[in-house]
Nucleic acid binder design. Structure first.
Lengths: 218, 218
DNA sequence: TAAAAAAAGAACTAAAGTAGAACATTTATA
DNA sequence: TATAAATGTTCTACTTTAGTTCTTTTTTTA
């Protein structure tokens, strides 16, 4: 294979031939490669000829021919590899992914699951976070669709109007809008087809507050 | 079977040749393989030559050529690759945030903005991505709310039914469902209150395809 | 824990790159 | 076609970079 200088020169020759239709002179190559003497170019070209990247038509000036150039990886693959390297440096916050939420099991019950999800740092500044996959359509008018990932901040308390993970009767976890009335807690869906559940404070508690939604399209 | 070091070196040589067009020096190989002495590299290369994975032009510097790549990777390498894959799930990528989309300026016009956004790496593995903040309610039934961040993959083409960034009349960028009819392009909103725009193909072009949505609650 | 393998380091040799000048050949044009 | 201009070749001398070989040290493993 080639040395860096040889490669640079080869590419320059190939380019000028393709662009201008004729082979550059040694003077021009000097400029392009950044050396001050023609003898250097001569030596480089002799090497390129020996390694069969270039052919010379004897007894002619400006009569080089590029035989082959090293074959390359496609650009997009190189870019992807660069991205991977970059991404490996930028490790972002990891939060556990606890499975689906809608009906059924309370969050703790499935906390053993070991999946994690990476989320941008600015979503999870302070506090303890976890993620749930939303199941069902009950929050659709809040732009929360079936299959979305909900990023939840663990908390026991919520303010009126916040979307929370609520645990009902210690058995059913659900994502709803939290409203504390005089003697009741209202869990409001965001979907006309669903009804607000009105519960006694003893029947329900907050497990977390919705902090973000992430969705992937394929 | 090659030792992990040999394999790693072989892949490094192959890769640099394909990426940079020229053969790496021993000094560079030292770095790549993680050895502190050139003599080690020398030994490894002698081995690779012996086993005919690599060829050398005698009495030349930077004159190695990869003959073939082994079919099987050493175990250590496979394990290392698994680790990298795992790490990738835990990492994020930076993509540019180009401002808001709804009406007005085409994307290129605001491409100078220098904000970046970190997104989970698995959202943006291949291709070129950018982010836009959604303005308006026209896609609300697709769960895309005012203020959401749309993660977009740059593309000139789209399939029917995909949500795309469409540039209308070279001046107005908008997020809509793309439908190609016989002689028309339909840009469908996802909101009953908005109407589908029916355009001649010359009036509209795709700038990107929606790949993800991210939303933050406060 | 002794033998073998791998790695590090130093000293050395060889190749690549740089520079300038003189000279040879090809090309353009008067 | 003679000549000047442009281009290419060769030579010497030197610097930097690259590759080799050998000895010593460290690590592995039988």
């Amino acid at each position: 294979m080639l040395t860096p200088k040889q490669y640079k020169l080869l590419m320059f020759i190939d380019n000028t031939i393709k662009e201008k239709g004729c082979c550059p002179s040694y003077e021009e190559m000097k400029e392009a490669v950044g050396i001050k003497s023609k003898s250097g170019i001569h030596a480089l070209i002799e090497e390129l000829i020996e390694r069969e990247f270039v052919r010379k038509i004897p007894h002619k000036a400006r009569a080089l021919e590029v035989v082959r150039i090293p074959r390359f990886k496609p650009k997009d693959i190189i870019e992807e590899e660069k991205k991977i390297k970059l991404a490996l440096q930028n490790s972002s916050a990891q939060i556990p992914l606890y499975g689906k939420i809608a009906a059924g099991t309370p969050i703790e019950a499935i906390a053993y699951e070991n999946d994690t999800l990476s989320v941008p740092f600015d979503m999870v500044e302070r506090g303890e976070f976890y993620a749930l996959q939303v199941e069902g359509e009950s929050m659709i008018e809040a732009g929360i669709m079936d299959g979305d990932i909900a990023v939840i901040k663990r908390s026991n308390v919520a303010e009126n109007g916040q979307i929370v993970v609520a645990l009902v009767e210690e058995s059913e976890a659900t994502l709803k809008v939290w409203r504390k009335k005089k003697d009741e807690i209202w869990l409001e869906p965001c979907n006309k087809d669903y009804e607000t559940r009105k519960l006694h404070p003893s029947q329900v508690r907050v497990q977390g507050i919705l902090r973000g939604i992430m969705r992937k399209y394929h």
